[in-house]
Simulated assay, not measured.
Amino acid sequence: MATFTHKCPNCGGALEFNADTQSWKCEFCLSDFNNETIKSLEDSVISDNDSSIEEQLPKEDMEFNNKARMYSCTSCGAEIVTDDVTAATFCYYCHSPAILPGQLSGKYRPAKVLPFKFKRDSATTTFINWCKKKPLLSKDFTSASQLELLSGIYVPFWLFDCDIRGKMTAEGRNIRTWVSGNKKYTETKYYDVVRAGTACFGKIPADGSKKIDDQLMETLEPFDYSQMEDFSMSYLSGYLAEKYDKDQNDVYGRISDRVQKYTDKLLRDAIKGYSSVSVKNCNVDIYKSKATYVLLPAWIFTYDYKGKKYIFAMNGQTGKVAGSLPLSKARMAAYFSIISGSVFAILLLGGMLI
């Protein structure tokens, strides 16, 4: 399958997207290029390669159960090995960014992309500071070799716009108590409560990747979708990217669950003026929905520790972090030994002073 790298028109070096300046920079001659220039370059490259993108088929390797794909680096000619959902990667030898346009064509072409706002050094600093707050963390978790595994990834997402009708039935209770003489009286009044309405929900996200933990991605929300751009493969330069392997039908159940919870809360919040409320039933009908395929930015670090996988993730736009960290048994033992020793010293000193 054909690949291409955005080349600097001045020196021919590889261009990478700069999250700080929102432009494309050549690391060789230090030239900067805006979106309009890159788009014109991209259009010419893609038009030259259209036929090869359509005609060439990826080499399938049975050893990888037909899931591995091989591509040729346009800079050094080396073979790049990826899986069947990778859309942007790096050459392992010359480190040039390699974009695989055939992976994001046709139905796999996103409508929008949300560019990275945090560069790698910012993401690394955020990760290290996050780890400093975890005293029982394994020391090698923030070693230089491990930090090399921190990757900027454009994650495939579906954004749903939904129109709904909701109806809730409940029982409201008002309780009044008073004292007359030496007796206390309680009066409870019961009410049948009905709340109904329509609502429009916009841009409810659900990731379209089987590899990435859904709950982790939800924890990274929210994203500011007002900053999305029309999709251009130039934004992928310098980052990893994947195409979806779960379509809108596969993620619709998660969207439906979220809409149910949102609507339930809206209707519940509309019931006021009662001492207590018991919800009997809530029906939500999604009568219209539309899904848009987009790519959203995340810095992700996966770490295997003693047979268990841990994942750190950072929102590539807002800097919000989430994830789990392994605990070092050796550091735990040392930590609790220090605490125990301190407590013993305090008790001993207290005994000496008595």
Rank of each mutant, 00 (worst) to 15 (best):
I271G: 03
Y92L: 01
G13V: 00
Q248G: 00
A206W: 05
D207A: 07
G181R: 06
K309E: 05
N34F: 04
F231H: 06
Y190D: 15
F4P: 02
D207Y: 00
K39T: 08
R109N: 07
D161M: 07
S40V: 14
L349T: 04
G273M: 10
Y93F: 04
T125F: 09
S337R: 08
D50E: 12
A78E: 11
N249P: 03
A330I: 13
A196Q: 13
G13T: 01
F141C: 02
V321Q: 05
D192T: 12
M168N: 12
L15R: 11
V155P: 06
S23Q: 15
V194D: 07
A333K: 09
E42S: 04
S337T: 15
K309Q: 15
S122R: 15
A333F: 11
D269F: 07
A68C: 13
M352H: 11
F4D: 05
E221P: 00
Y305G: 07
A98N: 12
L347N: 02
F127P: 11
Q317S: 15
K329G: 12
T126H: 11
G152A: 03
D230R: 07
K246R: 13
K308V: 02
R254A: 02
T82F: 03
F116S: 04
L267P: 01
G238R: 06
A123P: 09
S75F: 14
F118S: 10
A241P: 01
M233S: 15
K280S: 09
K59C: 06
V343G: 07
D48T: 09
S52Q: 02
S340Y: 13
C29Q: 07
N35K: 11
T186V: 13
A111H: 11
V113I: 15
C73S: 03
T3D: 08
E54A: 01
K25N: 00
K183I: 04
M1H: 14
P97M: 00
D84Y: 04
E79F: 12
K184S: 11
Y244P: 05
T186I: 15
N18A: 08
Y93I: 10
L240N: 13
I255K: 04
W178V: 03
L150T: 04
Y239L: 09
G341P: 11
